[in-house]
Structures are given as C-alpha cells and as structure tokens.
Amino acid sequence: MITWRRLAHDDLPLLKSWLEQPHVARWWNHETSMEAVLRDFGPSVRGEEPGEDLLVFLDHDPLGLVQRSRLADYPEELEPLKEIVDVPEGAVQIDYLIGDPARVGHGLGTSMIGAILERTWNELPDATCVVVPVSAANIASWRALEKAGMRRVGEGDLEPDNPIDALLHFIYRVDRPGR
C-alpha cells in the first residue's frame, strides 16, 4: 500500500542518499551536499514554501519523493509551460523519484503517480488538472505517466534539469475526473 507524509527534517539524510543514486542523479541533477539539501528542501520542511515535498512509503518502507505544487505559485515554471500548452487556472504540477534502485522498473512509479493523482483530487478541490513536463529523453518517466492515465498534450523546449539533456520536453496532463 502506498502512503505518504510531508518530508521532515529527519528525512533529509535519506533524501540526500537518494539524490546521490545514479538513476536519480541522472534526471534530478541536484547538488548532494547536506548543505544543498537543507538549502533546497529545508523551506518546504519548515512550511515556508507553497509546494509540498511528500515522502512516499510502500508498506511502511520509504520508497520515494513526490513534489506537488500549484503552478500559479511558481510563475517561473508556469510561464514557459503556457508558451507550449494551455494551462488552466488551478493547475497542479508534480515531480517524483524512486530512491532505491532495486525498486525501479517494477511499476511502482506508475502506482505512485496514480496514488498522488487520486490524493490530489481529494485534497485540492480547486485543482483543475495535473500538468507534468518531462524530458523527452526520460522514457521511463513519460511511460509511467501514460500508464497512470496521463496524456501527452504537447511538446516544446524547456530548460532541462540536467544540462546534458536537450531542451525538448513532453507535456503530460490529466484533468480532474468529471470535468
């Protein structure tokens, strides 16, 4: 069973170890010093960020991280997306990782995405849709989005998380059920 809670200060060493894993580092390209992890995730842990960092569990064991935010709270991410696709008011964005390399490739990413989508509809009644830009080169990620019921609605150039990647991103979206 997939569950989660907000990331806490005591979780940051675990997150640091996940960010150091080659399969995560390839796509997140995050500085992995403890100072950098505190700098970038500390504001969310302290409730100073509008977005959420959620520690995901599978049967009580840590599995990964989901970041969830309202796009309107991050205009630096919203504006480039709006140049490529229609982004309705109330759009939410997610990002995700599975920390343990032994758990990658078993459908858990799809399950995690499906669970966060369901929870988003329940917890954020004004959320109109979930929009996810993903590097076109990250095939496993966009396939997990598709398997979780999201559809590709566009493609275009966005700044990649990792500078070794091309600018091309696929944009995925799922609308609130019943809309």
Score class of each variant (00 low, 15 high):
residue 2 I to L: 14
residue 3 T to S: 14
residue 4 W to E: 11
residue 5 R to N: 00
residue 7 L to Q: 05
residue 7 L to T: 00
residue 8 A to K: 14
residue 9 H to Q: 14
residue 10 D to R: 11
residue 12 L to D: 06
residue 12 L to C: 07
residue 15 L to G: 02
residue 17 S to L: 13
residue 21 Q to E: 13
residue 23 H to T: 05
residue 23 H to A: 02
residue 24 V to L: 12
residue 25 A to M: 10
residue 25 A to P: 02
residue 26 R to P: 08
residue 26 R to S: 03
residue 27 W to A: 07
residue 30 H to Y: 05
residue 32 T to V: 12
residue 33 S to L: 11
residue 36 A to G: 00
residue 37 V to E: 09
residue 37 V to R: 13
residue 37 V to S: 09
residue 38 L to V: 11
residue 43 P to N: 06
residue 43 P to R: 00
residue 47 G to M: 01
residue 48 E to N: 08
residue 48 E to V: 03
residue 49 E to F: 10
residue 50 P to M: 13
residue 51 G to F: 04
residue 53 D to T: 07
residue 55 L to I: 08
residue 55 L to Y: 01
residue 55 L to W: 08
residue 56 V to E: 11
residue 56 V to C: 15
residue 57 F to H: 05
residue 59 D to M: 10
residue 59 D to R: 14
residue 60 H to K: 13
residue 60 H to Y: 11
residue 60 H to S: 14
residue 63 L to P: 12
residue 63 L to T: 01
residue 65 L to F: 10
residue 66 V to E: 01
residue 66 V to M: 07
residue 66 V to C: 07
residue 69 S to H: 09
residue 70 R to A: 11
residue 74 Y to A: 02
residue 75 P to L: 09
residue 80 P to V: 10
residue 82 K to D: 11
residue 83 E to A: 15
residue 83 E to S: 15
residue 86 D to Q: 06
residue 86 D to A: 02
residue 87 V to I: 02
residue 88 P to L: 05
residue 88 P to W: 10
residue 93 Q to S: 15
residue 94 I to P: 11
residue 97 L to S: 06
residue 97 L to Y: 00
residue 100 D to Q: 00
residue 101 P to N: 15
residue 106 H to P: 01
residue 108 L to M: 13
residue 110 T to F: 07
residue 110 T to Q: 11
residue 113 I to Q: 06
residue 114 G to V: 05
residue 116 I to N: 01
residue 117 L to H: 05
residue 118 E to A: 14
residue 119 R to P: 03
residue 119 R to C: 10
residue 120 T to S: 09
residue 121 W to R: 02
residue 122 N to M: 06
residue 122 N to A: 04
residue 125 P to V: 03
residue 126 D to R: 04
residue 126 D to Q: 07
residue 131 V to C: 08
residue 132 V to Y: 00
residue 132 V to D: 09
residue 135 S to P: 07
residue 136 A to T: 05
residue 137 A to C: 10
residue 139 I to C: 03
residue 140 A to N: 07
residue 144 A to I: 07
residue 144 A to K: 06
residue 150 M to V: 03
residue 151 R to F: 02
residue 151 R to S: 01
residue 152 R to H: 01
residue 153 V to W: 00
residue 155 E to A: 12
residue 155 E to H: 05
residue 156 G to W: 14
residue 158 L to G: 00
residue 158 L to H: 01
residue 159 E to C: 01
residue 160 P to G: 05
residue 160 P to Q: 04
residue 160 P to I: 00
residue 160 P to S: 00
residue 161 D to F: 14
residue 162 N to T: 12
residue 162 N to R: 14
residue 164 I to S: 15
residue 164 I to C: 14
residue 165 D to C: 00
residue 166 A to Q: 14
residue 167 L to P: 09
residue 169 H to E: 07
residue 170 F to N: 08
residue 171 I to M: 10
residue 175 D to E: 03
residue 176 R to A: 01
residue 177 P to F: 05
residue 179 R to L: 07
